[in-house]
């Protein structure tokens, strides 16, 4: 997202639904700081436990997709 031009990143359930919130939160901050350095990105992802489970968008019915709200 940063390489696509985002200026900052919101992280929702990703941190506190993972197995190791403090470590993952730190890793995410480092990843945003070093978004254009793949070696550094690999380094900050070492030693993390399981990430949040997540859902495939295709499995969520259209009427339940929050991003379609608003006008």
């Amino acid at each position: 997202m940063m390489q696509l031009g985002a200026e900052s990143v919101f992280v929702g359930s990703g941190i506190f639904k993972s197995e190791d919130p403090p470590a993952r939160a730190k890793a995410i901050v480092s990843a945003i700081t070093h978004f254009d350095d793949p070696a550094k990105l690999a380094e900050v992802s070492y030693g993390l436990q399981t990430a949040m489970k997540g859902l495939d968008m295709a499995e969520i019915p259209e009427e339940q997709r929050m991003q379609e709200r608003g006008w």
Partner: peptide
């Protein structure tokens, strides 16, 4: 949007962004 909805699927988000 899309990044915030507990879906974790990247392609839609990237395309929209």
């Amino acid at each position: 949007r899309r990044y915030r909805h507990a879906c974790g699927r990247v392609p839609d988000d990237a395309a929209r962004r």
